[in-house]
């Protein structure tokens, strides 16, 4: 895959030097950033629709915060502080599975349980950070919290690409079943859907997706990108096709523009923040459209 990435980067760098495209693409890290944006955008946009339908936005927020704890544990265990993927994935998957297991067993409401798990995870993370600060400069954790799309390397792109492929391969064939199970679990069960199993599958998908996107958008902001484009698409659509398509478009545009704008206009904004702010502007624009244009009002009722 590295050869493929090199070829793509060379293509862009040459085009930038020839003046065909903006000169910012003469830097390889910029090309890396755009590659990640083009993978992350559609992925989060599509999965975001399911997150909104299943009302799981708070869950992805909790997983994002658990990633911080995963990083701290990884550094303590001797993993590279720039890419502690083993610890992040292990801790977050354990976190997600345990949360879902507890929810199924206790029948407690999701928001209460997620709040409890989120607090525990942050407490463990804060404790672990004390030990981490002795080993590395804790400012490196800013990257985890708010993302640093321009520091991604081939390993990060590989992790992202594999996660994207796994998510697409699993979620596409199960999309209808997940949707039906979230509308009426009993009806879905009669139709042969294994509702509990699908809950675990969905939790796992959101978990690996969140962890894979942490470096691109940041632990704090990845939930926003799962939620805002889908919420914006929901403002304007009455059908599932429009909902998914527009969510993907909004999310991809947010990612690409969020990477492009700070560099093109010399704005002192981190890429993660710019991506989410772009999505937020789109969200408020759709709200305005819905209020002003009668043909979109039906989407609100």
């Amino acid at each position: 895959m590295n050869a493929l990435y090199d070829a793509i980067r060379t293509l862009f760098v040459d085009a930038a030097y020839e003046g065909t495209i903006n000169f910012m693409f003469s830097y390889e890290f910029v090309v890396n950033g755009f590659l990640c944006a083009l993978i992350v955008g559609p992925l989060l946009g599509a999965m975001g629709t399911m997150v909104v339908i299943k009302r799981m936005a708070f869950f992805s927020q909790a997983v994002g915060n658990a990633a911080l704890t995963g990083v701290a544990i990884g550094v303590i265990l001797g993993e590279s502080y720039t890419a502690p993927y083993v610890s992040m994935f292990s801790f977050c998957i354990l976190f997600g599975l345990l949360l879902n297991f507890t929810r199924n067993r206790t029948k407690m409401s999701s928001d209460t349980l997620i709040g409890v798990f989120l607090s525990i995870s942050l407490a463990v993370g804060a404790t672990a950070l004390l030990f981490v600060s002795a080993k590395v400069n804790t400012h490196i954790l800013d990257t985890v919290m708010f993302g640093s799309i321009l520091t991604v390397n081939n390993l990060d792109i590989n992790v992202l690409l594999v996660t994207a492929l796994i998510t697409a391969a699993v979620a596409l064939p199960l999309y209808n079943q997940m949707l039906l199970a979230s509308l009426n679990p009993n009806l879905a069960h009669v139709r042969g859907v294994n509702v509990h199993f699908l809950e675990y599958v969905f939790v796992l998908l959101i978990t690996i997706l969140t962890v894979a996107c942490v470096k691109i958008v940041g632990a704090v902001l990845v939930e926003a990108l799962l939620l805002i484009p889908a919420a914006a698409a929901r403002n304007l659509n009455t059908s599932i096709r429009g909902f998914v398509v527009w969510s993907v478009i909004f999310s991809t545009f947010s990612c690409v523009f969020g990477v492009y704008a700070p560099m093109a206009y010399d704005l002192p904004i981190p890429s993660g923040g710019a991506i989410v702010l772009t999505a937020a502007v789109i969200f408020f624009a759709t709200l305005l459209i819905r209020m002003v244009m009668p043909r979109f009002r039906e989407a609100a009722f």
């Binding site: 596409l172 209808n176 949707l179 009426n184 929901r234 059908s239 599932i240 609100a300």
Partner: peptide, 30 residues
């Protein structure tokens, strides 16, 4: 199976055709 009532979020962008599609076919409704 016809459940007692289908309680859904009224703002959910799922049309009548979408619902029938998601219930009766494997290809994603979108």
């Amino acid at each position: 199976y016809v459940p007692q009532q289908l309680e859904i979020d009224k703002t959910l962008p799922v049309s009548v055709v979408d619902f029938l599609t998601m219930a009766t076919q494997r290809r994603p409704a979108f």
